[in-house]
Amino acid sequence: MRLICTVNGTQQQVDDVWEGESLLYVLRERMGLPGSKNACEQGECGSCTVLLDGLPVCACLVAAGQAEARQVETVEGMADGGALDPVQQAFLDAGAVQCGFCTPGLLVSTRDLLQRSGRPSDAETREALAGNLCRCTGYEKILDAVRLAADRLAQSGTGGHR
């Protein structure tokens, strides 16, 4: 089947999609956007987190056809050209990236969290990121990165809208 949707602001059309393919497979294998990672394919790890019409979802659990005419945002769309998103920069600065396989999903989830809640408490952050497994960091530096990004966004006035 044919699938047309908007990914990171650009309309994408792909053909010959098998109906059982997930949005994750289509992004990775048909649209050349492998930034969203495939680690479990059962919604348990969050490595494939993308925004679907603005909501964080596991792309592995979205049937390709369900994305028809929808807006999809992936990690590849976060940076503004050469300039990293403040959340991306904070993950680097805080040392929150080791193997990096969980990073794309965590970045998308964190960006969403900070849009909704400018200065989340640690408890809020933990509940919001509980769906993103990380095996390398023990999460401490991920929390550091979220706090750092929240501080920087608040200082620059581009943080949460709540």
Binding site: L33, M78, F91, L92, V97, G100
Partner: peptide
């Protein structure tokens, strides 16, 4: 990390990303 920017941009290619 020298691979850090690639990793946060989603551009770092893992074994499963080869194509």
């Amino acid at each position: 990390r020298p691979d850090g920017v690639l990793k946060v941009r989603g551009e770092f290619a893992y074994g499963s990303d080869l194509w």
